[in-house]
Write a protein that binds this DNA or RNA. Structure first.
Lengths: 256, 256
DNA sequence: AGGGTAGGTGTACGCAGTACACTTGTCAAG
DNA sequence: CTTGACAAGTGTACTGCGTACACCTACCCT
C-alpha cells in the first residue's frame, strides 16, 4: 500500500519545474492571468508551496525571463560583427516571439538577472571584437536599446480597427469615416500598408520586415560611425560644438 | 446654517479634477502605488465616487496618458522636416520626463486614445510634409518606434550598483569583483562611461546625450533613404531580392 | 410642489500576494 | 529500530485591490 501511494506520488516540485510550468502557463493563458494561485493549481499544489522554491512573484518573473533568455542562440563564430550582431538579434527575436508575454515582462523588470546580464555582456563583446572602441560600443548599445531583444513596440498596431472583423460593417464604416476626418495621415499610411498584401482585416503590415528595416538602419549607422572613427567629443558638454569629427550625430544642446 | 454647509461643501468632482489628481498622485507616490482607493482618499471621497467620472481604472490610466500627451508642444512651423521632428521628439521627451511613470503606462496600453492618435497623426504629417513617400514614412515610423515619445528604455541603468552608495564598501568591492569576472565587457563600458564625468556612484551616463545620439543616428538614416528615393521593394516577399534600390537596409529573408 | 437626475455613499464580492504556524515524508545517525 | 532533524507541502488568515449594485440626497426644471 505504501508502495501504491509512492507510485501515485507526484514528483516533488523544484525551482525548475515551477519555472517551466510558469512559462507554459503564461504561454497558454497570458501573463496577466498568471497568478501564484493559478500556477499552484496547475501544479496540483497549494499556493504557498511555491514559496518554498521562489521567494515571491517578482522572483518568479525574473526566473521566467531568464529561462527565455537562455533560449537565445550563442553568437555565431567567424563572421563580421555586423553579421554576428544581426543574427543574434534575430535569434533573440525568435525566442521572444515564442513567448509573447516575454516582451512585457522584460520591459517591466529592472533586469539584473544573471542570464540578462550575460546576454548583454556577450552582446557588448560582439562590438568590441569587431573593433569598436569602448566609447562607441557604449553609445551603440544605448542606441540599440530594447531592439537588442528583437522586439519593437508595436505602438502602431492596426489603428483603424478595434476588433478586426467582429463589428457590423456599418459601424466599421462609421469608424473609418471618423478616422479619415480626424487622423487623415494615419489613415494614409495604414491603407497604403494594407493593400500591399490585400487584406483589410488582417495584420496590417509585416512586422518582421519592419523590424529588420529598423535594425539594418541602425547597424548601417553604426558601421558608418565605426569606419569614421567616431568618438563622443565630450567637449560639447562643456563648451562649443567642436569640429564635428565627421560623424553625423552631433547633438546640439537643446536646453532640456 | 445651510449657507455654512454650502460654504464648507467641497467643489464637486469632475473628470478633469479626477485626472489631474491622479497625475499628481502618480508623480508623488509612483504609478504602482496609485490605486482607486488611494486616489479617492486623496480627493476626500469614497472610492466608488470616482466611477461616476471614469469608467474604470484602465480608462483612468488612458486619461492620464492623454493629459501628458497634451503637454507636448505642437510642431514648429517653417523648418525642415528633420528639425521639426527632432524638436517635437525632444518636447515629448521633456513632457515624459516630468512624469516618470508615463513611459511605463504608455507602453502598457494599446494606445488608441484621441491624444495619442492625434500625436501620431501629426507626427506622420511631419514626414509627409517633408516630402517623404507614404511608404517610407510608414517604415520610418516603425523604425522610430517608441523613440517618438522621447524615451529609451534604460535597460542599462548602471549595471554595477544595486543601491548606489547604500552598501558597505566591502560588499561593494565584492560585487565589483564578481562583475569583473562574470561580465567583463559590461564592466568595461560601465567604467569607461563613468570616469568621464568623474563620479562613481552617480548616474553612470548622460541619458540626454544617449537619447540624442540614437535619435540623430536614426534621423540621418531616414534622410539618406529619403534622398536616395528609397522604396520598399515588396518583391522580396514573393520572389528573389531585386536590384537593391540603392538604400542600405535590405532585409535578407532569414527564415524566422 | 414634485419628481427626475447627477453625484456621492455603503456594503459586499472575488481575487490577488503572502505571513506564519502546522504537518508530513525522508533519510542519517545513534 | 528508533529518533529526530530538515526539507517539502498544507491551512488559515490578513491586507489590499477593482468594482457591482442598491441606496441616499441635493439640486434643477417644470
Amino acid at each position: 500500500m505504501t508502495q501504491q501511494v509512492e507510485a501515485t506520488r507526484r514528483v516533488p516540485l523544484s525551482r525548475d519545474r515551477v519555472l517551466d510550468a510558469a512559462v507554459a502557463l503564461a504561454d497558454e493563458v497570458g501573463i496577466e492571468s498568471l497568478s501564484m494561485r493559478r500556477l499552484a493549481q496547475e501544479l496540483g499544489v497549494v499556493p504557498m508551496a511555491l514559496y518554498k522554491h521562489v521567494a515571491n512573484k517578482d522572483e518568479l518573473l525574473d526566473g521566467m525571463v531568464d529561462a527565455i533568455v537562455r533560449e537565445i542562440d550563442p553568437p555565431v563564430r567567424d563572421a563580421g560583427w555586423k553579421c554576428v550582431v544581426r543574427l543574434r538579434v534575430l535569434s533573440a527575436r525568435r525566442a521572444l516571439l515564442r513567448h509573447p508575454w516575454a516582451r512585457r515582462v522584460l520591459e517591466s523588470r529592472t533586469n539584473r538577472t544573471p542570464a540578462v546580464l550575460g546576454y548583454m555582456d556577450s552582446f557588448i563583446g560582439m562590438f568590441l571584437a569587431g573593433g569598436f572602441s569602448v566609447d562607441l560600443t557604449h553609445h551603440v548599445m544605448h542606441a540599440l536599446g530594447s531592439r537588442m531583444w528583437g522586439f519593437t513596440q508595436e505602438l502602431f498596431d492596426d489603428p483603424a480597427s478595434g476588433n478586426p472583423a467582429a463589428m457590423a460593417p456599418e459601424a466599421q464604416a462609421a469608424v473609418f469615416r471618423e478616422m479619415a476626418e480626424r487622423y487623415p495621415n494615419i489613415l494614409k499610411v495604414a491603407t497604403a500598408a494594407r493593400h500591399d498584401d490585400g487584406s483589410v482585416a488582417g495584420q496590417g503590415c509585416d512586422d518582421q520586415f519592419e523590424f529588420e528595416f529598423a535594425l539594418d538602419l541602425l547597424l548601417d549607422g553604426f558601421e558608418r560611425l565605426h569606419e569614421q572613427g567616431w568618438t563622443s567629443q565630450r567637449a560639447n558638454l562643456v563648451g562649443g560644438a567642436p569640429g564635428d569629427s565627421g560623424g553625423p550625430p552631433k547633438p546640439r544642446p537643446e536646453s532640456v
